[in-house]
Write a protein that binds this DNA or RNA. Structure first.
Lengths: 229, 229
DNA sequence: CTCTGGTGTATGGTATACCAGAAACCAGAC
DNA sequence: GTCTGGTTTCTGGTATACCATACACCAGAG
């Protein structure tokens, strides 16, 4: 009588409205490339609540959360606006990222197994070969971020992962604006290789330094070649 | 007729209820040393709202914010609980702090003026002499944090300041549990001196390394001597 | 034409009422 | 006495109505 067994809790709806709205809005905001459009950046609470078919209360809670994360700015009696990060803010984010990933690399030299580091090398080599094949390097940025996230994950430090995830969310929004240069990609791959070797050799200071310098180079590149308000 | 000029906007009440409640709750939670008591860690929305004399809505928004910051945990249909950080979480916070302050020190060697660094030295020496005088070293922790915050401020990186402020808030809650040892204080002062000298000499790598190692030593100390769930 | 004052309107802020789920409690059967 | 079932109650979640303020618009005076 297995056919009579209740298909319990396929409930897609296991989360609170607030949480679902939050995710939906976040995804929507990140998706739309706010830096490439002059579109209206204002959100209307009442319109959104009708659009989602819910009341304003959970919507407002979701918006408050987005406000705190810096994706949105709530101006009292004025409106709710999607935030365009300034160039200075983006640069600070990359700086913080550099500091955190540098610390992650340091931790990796102490807590990661040889197998994990080997997987990182594998990841990099896969990326590298793929890189050689398609000259179209659009995915460079994604693969690059994957590499760095792998280091962070291997550090076993959840907090670093949490914070950097929040940073990536913002930084990715401008990745389409980063002018890709072949030289930078090649340099990047060399950097990655050196980082991997430092990790394999458990060279704590060197690994941290290489990661920091690598990411700070990205910062300088953005500073010089990306044009933002 | 100057006496007739209106003393405009002494409005103490310039902030929204949500913001004020948020500050009040945050202060209250940080104040009560949650690690030293077995007191009930549960908060009652309705009771609080009556206690503050406001409705549940702004209170809930303030609580949601505290939840996101990790000071409080909202469990659906169960209750709202003040969070006791686990030892592992505290250690991660100190690790992140180390990474960020290390980056701050690096930045300081590039962006801070000689005058600013001189002030840091002054701050440290004031602390040092005061330290020598009163054997009662209760304020060591506070002065220590001031020193580190000064470095962060001098880095001119607002984001690092924002994140570390959030970390300090949590770490301070357990500072009363950190066993103070004379040797650690002395070692700490030597570290600070070395850091100052590295900054003065604009030795970027050295400054970063010293700060990182200094803070990681604190982490190891907490790991070994502080007893938490 | 311009400036000023008032009023209308749209916005976020707040208060309140109701809903749903979970846990605790209690009564009845065994 | 213990286990089981339902019911009560307390919790956070949601919906809705109302309030206060900032801005826009317009009319009237100069």
């Amino acid at each position: 009588m297995a056919s009579l067994i209740l298909n319990v809790s396929p409930i897609e709806e296991g989360f609170s409205l607030k949480a679902r709205i939050y995710e939906a809005l976040k995804a929507a905001i990140v998706r739309m490339n706010i830096y490439d459009t002059d579109a209206e950046l204002r959100l209307d609470e009442r319109a959104l609540s009708q659009q989602f078919g819910i009341s304003r209360t959970p919507l407002r809670e979701a918006l408050a959360q987005l406000d705190q994360e810096g994706l949105v700015k709530i101006v009292p009696r004025r409106g709710i606006y999607i935030v365009r990060k300034t160039k200075a803010e983006i640069l600070e984010m990359i700086t913080v990222w550099a500091g955190l990933e540098g610390m992650a690399a340091r931790l990796v030299t102490h807590v990661a197994s040889d197998e994990e580091i080997a997987e990182l090398r594998q990841l990099h080599e896969n990326f590298f070969s793929a890189e050689e094949i398609r000259e179209h390097l659009g995915e460079y940025s994604d693969a690059n971020i994957k590499f760095h996230q792998a280091i962070i994950r291997m550090s076993k430090c959840k907090l670093i992962a949490t914070i950097t995830d929040g940073l990536f969310m913002h930084v990715r929004a401008i990745r389409q604006r980063t002018i890709f240069e072949r030289d930078r990609a090649r340099r990047s791959l060399v950097d990655h290789m050196n980082i991997i070797e430092a990790l394999e050799g458990r060279k704590t200071e060197r690994a941290q330094r290489l990661v920091v310098e690598h990411t700070l180079r990205l910062r300088d590149h953005v500073e010089q070649h990306v044009d933002l308000p």
